[in-house]
């Protein structure tokens, strides 16, 4: 465990080298909030509630979900793996005495810990700048459930991206697929619009998928909605983590031996 803590600490420190990136990352979180503000301000001018949201409830949802979306940076894992497998330098991770998936999970947690404070600060700034009457649930149990779900959701995304990275051993070129995946993930995690706006049949189907629990349900829970789904959500996302771990184990065993370390 100590070595993974060291990896996380190293990546946390590494972030300090790119201070301008941190600042710009904070500034660019405004894109999603501005989109929501402009779109929903026009829509709510004619209606008081939409899909169970008031204007400020909707913006609170976007503040929370964009905070989580901003923290979820695991897409870098699959991109890093794909690039290194293609150019033959993935050996760097194979030769060190750590579990490769653990290495990437520790790396991700170091980066997330670093950005946690800055993204939190950015969320505060946007709340004041846009004059949002922020809605946050007061029930401690619901908050705990939402945070647990976010952690599990982030872990699932690390697993998913690690799994996709492994597929590079077999398919060699997966960058196009990764970009398509990023577009779809933005939709199914509810970071563009709340999934509550979709028809009930689609939402019911999405409840079986893990993405529903990555940012959408935690954000809804924290804005005081869908409380009845909290415990079930934790169980479902935990099950998905177990399934994904099994898939990783099988894929790793099968495909890692294809790596010749010379690049394509």
């Amino acid at each position: 465990m100590r070595k993974y803590r060291e990896i996380a600490r190293t990546y946390l420190k590494t972030q300090l080298a790119w201070r301008a990136d941190v600042l710009f990352n904070m500034v660019f979180t405004v894109g999603r909030i501005l989109f929501a503000y402009l779109l929903w301000k026009v829509i709510f001018a004619e209606k008081d509630t939409i899909g169970g949201f008031t204007f400020h409830g909707m913006l609170s949802y976007y503040i929370i979900s964009s905070f989580f979306t901003q923290l979820e940076m695991s897409h870098g894992i699959s991109e890093e793996m794909a690039a290194r497998i293609r150019n033959g330098t993935f050996s760097k991770y194979i030769v060190i005495p750590v579990n490769v998936e653990g290495y990437f999970a520790a790396m991700e947690s170091g980066v997330v810990l670093f950005y946690l404070f800055f993204d939190f600060a950015a969320a505060f700034i946007w709340i004041f700048l846009f004059g949002i009457e922020f809605t946050l649930v007061k029930d401690g149990m619901i908050i705990a459930c939402a945070l647990a779900m976010v952690l599990l959701g982030m872990f699932f995304m690390v697993q998913l991206n690690f799994f996709l990275g492994i597929l590079t051993f077999k398919y060699e070129e997966i960058n196009t697929f990764l970009m398509i995946k990023n577009n779809l993930i933005a939709l199914v995690t509810g970071s563009i619009v709340p999934l509550a706006l979709f028809p009930d049949t689609i939402v019911s189907f999405m409840r079986f998928l893990p993405f529903y629990y990555v940012t959408y349900l935690p954000s809804m829970l924290l804005t005081g909605k869908c409380a009845g789904e909290a415990v079930r959500g934790i169980i479902v996302i935990s099950c998905w983590c177990i399934v994904m771990q099994a898939a990783i184990r099988i894929a790793w065993k099968r495909y890692v031996r294809r790596f010749d370390g010379v690049g394509i």
């Binding site: 779109l39 026009v42 829509i43 209606k47 899909g51 939709l187 563009i192 979709f198 028809p199």
Partner: peptide, 17 residues
């Protein structure tokens, strides 16, 4: 994805801007 997003929004409202 854009088309799906706006279909979802227009299922709840009639006009945007």
């Amino acid at each position: 994805v854009q088309l799906m997003v706006f279909s979802a929004v227009y299922a709840n409202v009639e006009r945007i801007g």
